[in-house]
Write a protein that binds this DNA or RNA. Structure first.
Length: 800
DNA sequence: AAAAAAC
């Protein structure tokens, strides 16, 4: 633990002063409460109190922000901007922004200059918080523009547009990628960059009118296509000559401002196209089509809600096994490990009585409080391997103080986080602990409210957690156990920084459990920095050596890829198809549907509701084929995936193992087929070697039915799958209008809830906390009579 | 190189 990097966080040390600590907490709580109520906290006496407490990052000092903002456009304004989450509810976003003079102020304080000035520096010094703030500041603004439009336009719009939304969401990420870091520096070349930026700046105006009604939203689709063609021509011209900048400038001068606007928008569009997926994505998810079919929507909405409810009930039923009566028998392996009896019996109720090898190996050490480096395939039971000791440690302890979770589980993807909550929820209820999922793409409200109430176990993805920490909604200084799941993924570039930031905020003497499928460079570093004297455990099996897994490599001609893919995927049983890119996933899914194989894409470009719904449909079985990017390669567990088809070969052997690990789980049989184009043969060969797979590539043509059938496939003969069938999956269940809020909470995550949490907590713990929930404000915890009662969504928040 | 992760 001495190794832990605490030096950079002197604030942490200072927390031995109880008085300070208390004052800080009180101020924080007060502020958080105020935020929850959508108003600004009152000044609390001297400035310095609040500001000291803020310990700089994010400039959390509450009150003076407003004024200071004009002077120093540092973290303060940002916080204001972001604090808007509540206000957003109360008031229409844009308007109030204008009311507040938000834009103006930003102009005054030279927001953009600030960004210009600082942008470079920041990138240079890369100070975590600052950079975040800044990036966030600008980015957030942009994103929020979109977002807010979505929020306001609400539900319907999102419905109408379907895939479109995804595009917005993705815009955020992508943009961040583009702008952030080295990449942007590389591609932009000063000029272009500056152009972009100028455009962005113009974007203030744009920010004002655009979100309200993006220009293109009013355009006919054909115009779009025309415009797109035009742009393609332009692109070609630009590529042809290296004088893009000159050309642009010239054009701008020639056509004047109006043209620049057009240019700007065009540019944005081009950008998006370059990024790969927008257009096709939208097309494949039928956003526009749906928009044009608006008339269908109203009745569909009702159906959809019913369908979702049904799906939800189904989900409930399938995750309600805990009801089964079971007694803890003498040979219960978990009892022998010394686990808390409530945990053991809760496990027994779900039919789990014997630990998997990794569990048997790690649990004793974890119970002993040691730091742990666990290496094993997902599917080997890692969730319980860390979950059980963690909960054992919490069992019988007093409830966590508000905002200060006792245990933290970090995962690289939202899906994985949900999955972990699903798995651990019954156990946490069994020992009467509150838990909360904290992840992006979902509403803040329940997360803030949950933290406000106090959460014992926090399951989180990094970004949102940091966000909440910056908002002072979460404080990690009471964390006793930290779990990093899929640590190899989180040690990757881009994630690592966030992980370190988070780990630095947890006490150095806490227990840390790190799980990773592979132990390579990044994980080494992370482990060395944050684990003290760790015990290493590995289940020696790599996925490839699972003897129930069968591997094939098919060498295919590029032209044959599509029919062969369809023939392989057209099979009984669940199939996961992996693609390298989001665009590829969308395209393959579309092609499969065109060929009569029902498939849907899953990737990070979809909005969270869609992601959840797609995955849920796949789990439920209503969707037989999932076409995914590597978002699904790690950790995601779906029963009975009998085939993994890699349309694009994985990037390296680790990815191969991760991907193939989606099948042949828990002793099931599974087939892994990798398609390789001729020029990829060598690469795939190396990759398989590294993965320890022995398979001779076979040359396969569409006629080779016998070969294709090795995976149980057959040439599909069905009609193309209509878009509507996909829509049925993607479309959120909808509590229409504001009235619907009660049950599912806000729109953004409602879909996500649809199948996932929905009321799982409600259902199980209904008898326990239902009253509380219904009781609304009057039954809120004493200490917080003002907490919003709106979160009636039972899951993802602590029960209590 | 792509994907993922906050707004």
């Amino acid at each position: 633990m001495a190794k832990s990097v605490s030096a950079g966080h002197p604030g942490k040390k200072s927390r031995h002063t109880p008085a300070q600590k208390k004052a800080a907490r009180e101020a924080r709580e007060k502020q958080a409460r105020a935020q929850l109520k959508g108003r600004r906290p009152r000044p609390e006496g001297r400035y310095s109190d609040t500001r000291d407490r803020g310990d700089a990052p994010g400039g959390r000092g509450g009150y003076p922000r407003r004024d200071e903002r004009a002077d120093d456009r540092g973290g303060y304004p940002r916080r204001d901007d972001r604090g808007g989450y509540q206000k957003r509810d109360d008031r229409g976003g844009y308007q109030s922004r204008d009311d507040r003079g938000g834009y103006q102020k930003r102009d005054d304080r030279g927001g953009f200059q600030g960004r210009d000035d600082r942008g470079y520096q920041r990138r240079d010094d890369r100070g975590g918080y600052q950079k975040r703030d800044d990036r966030g500041g600008f980015q957030g603004r942009d994103d929020r523009g979109y977002q807010r439009r979505d929020d306001r336009g609400g539900y319907q719009k999102r419905d109408d547009r379907g895939g479109y939304q995804g595009r917005d969401d993705r815009g955020g990420y992508q943009r961040r990628d583009d702008r952030g870091g080295y990449q942007r520096r590389d591609d932009r070349g000063g000029y272009q960059r500056r152009n972009d930026r100028r455009d962005d700046r113009g974007g203030f105006q744009r920010g004002d009118d655009r979100p309200a009604r993006p220009r293109w939203a009013d355009e006919d689709r054909s115009d779009w296509r025309q415009e797109r063609r035009d742009r393609e021509v332009r692109e070609q011209r630009q590529q042809g000559s290296r004088s893009e900048h000159t050309w642009r400038t010239h054009r701008d001068e020639r056509d004047g401002r109006e043209a620049r606007r057009g240019h700007h928008e065009g540019r944005g569009w081009e950008d998006r196209r370059h990024r790969g997926d927008r257009f096709d994505d939208r097309r494949s998810t039928g956003g526009f089509d749906r928009r044009n079919r608006g008339a269908d929507l109203a009745p569909d909405g009702e159906q959809e809600r019913e369908a979702a409810e049904a799906a939800y009930q189904e989900h409930l039923a399938s995750s309600t096994k805990e009801d089964a009566t079971a007694t803890v028998t003498e040979d219960n392996g978990f009892a022998r490990l010394g686990l808390h009896e409530d945990l053991v019996s809760a496990l027994a109720r779900t039919g789990i009585t014997q630990p998997f090898p990794i569990q048997a190996a790690t649990i004793p050490d974890a119970l002993a409080g040691k730091d742990l480096l666990g290496r094993g395939q997902t599917g080997s039971g890692k969730t319980m391997a860390f979950g059980l000791p963690m909960l054992h440690r919490l069992a019988g302890r007093p409830r966590a103080v508000p905002h200060r979770p006792r245990a933290l589980i970090m995962t690289p993807t939202r899906e994985l986080a949900m999955q972990i909550v699903d798995a651990l929820a019954p156990l946490m209820r069994a020992i009467d602990k509150r838990f909360l999922l904290v992840a992006g793409g979902m509403s803040y409200t329940p997360q803030l409210a949950g933290l406000e109430r106090g959460v014992d176990v926090l399951v989180a993805t990094p970004g949102r957690l940091i966000d909440l920490i910056e908002r002072s909604a979460a404080d990690l200084s009471d964390v006793e156990v930290t779990v990093l799941d899929e640590a190899d993924h989180m040690a990757e570039m881009g994630f690592a920084e966030a992980m370190k930031q988070i780990l630095d905020l947890t006490p150095t003497d806490g227990q840390r459990l790190l799980f990773s499928a592979t132990l390579d460079h990044g994980v080494d570093q992370l482990a060395a920095a944050y684990l003290s004297d760790p015990v290493t455990h590995s289940t020696n099996d790599v996925a490839a050596s699972v003897d129930t897994m069968e591997h094939h490599v098919f060498l295919v001609h590029p032209h044959h890829k599509k029919p062969i893919t369809a023939a392989i995927a057209n099979r009984p049983g669940r199939t996961v198809v992996f693609c390298r890119t989001k665009l590829g996933a969308d395209r393959v899914a579309l092609q499969l549907r065109d060929s009569g194989v029902f498939a849907a894409a899953l990737h990070g470009g979809l909005n969270q509701a869609q992601r959840t719904r797609v995955l849920d449909a796949f789990k439920k079985g209503s969707l037989p084929v999932l076409v995914a990017t590597d978002v699904a390669a790690r950790g995601i567990h779906v029963d009975d995936v009998s085939l993994v088809l890699q349309v694009d070969p994985p990037a390296d052997h680790k990815d191969y193992l991760h991907r193939s690990g989606r099948t042949a789980r828990a002793g099931d049989e599974g087939v892994v087929v990798t398609l390789a184009l001729p020029h990829q043969k060598k690469q795939v060969g190396r990759l398989l070697d590294a993965a320890g797979v022995q398979t001779d590539p076979q040359v396969v043509a569409p006629e080779d039915v016998a070969v294709i059938e090795t995976a149980g496939g057959s040439v599909p003969e069905a009609d193309p799958i209509p878009q509507s069938q996909l829509d049925d999956i993607l479309r959120p269940p909808r509590p229409q209008g504001r009235g619907g809020r009660g049950r599912y909470g806000d729109r953004d995550s409602r879909g996500g809830r649809g199948g996932y949490g929905g009321g799982r907590g409600g259902q199980r713990s209904g008898s326990r906390d239902g009253g509380d929930r219904r009781g609304g404000p009057s039954r809120r915890p004493r200490r917080d009579p003002d907490a919003p009662a709106r979160d009636t969504r039972p899951d993802w928040r602590p029960r209590g």
